[in-house]
């Protein structure tokens, strides 16, 4: 019981720490000019494509 309680408390502390980090950096300090926004959009599309390819490869390997 004590172990489970300690584990729950540790996890809760970690989650709170992650929330604190999210709050600390909630507002990006870099000015979001159109160039920066465009670069981040392209980066998102690039990563989505790459993750899609990885997923496709994973599925085809599993299906074999």
């Amino acid at each position: 019981m004590n172990f489970l309680y300690a584990l729950r408390m540790t996890l809760a502390r970690q989650v709170e720490q992650v929330h604190a980090i999210n709050r600390r950096y909630a507002k990006p300090r870099l000015a979001m000019s159109s160039a920066v926004q465009w670069a981040l959009l392209v980066l998102r599309l690039y990563l989505l494509t790459l993750v899609g390819l990885l997923g496709y490869k994973f599925i085809t390997v599993v299906m074999q």
Partner: peptide, 12 residues
């Protein structure tokens, strides 16, 4: 990266 671009890109 966290500071400049926020938590999403930071965690990624």
């Amino acid at each position: 990266i966290f500071d400049g671009f926020g938590p999403f890109w930071g965690w990624f």
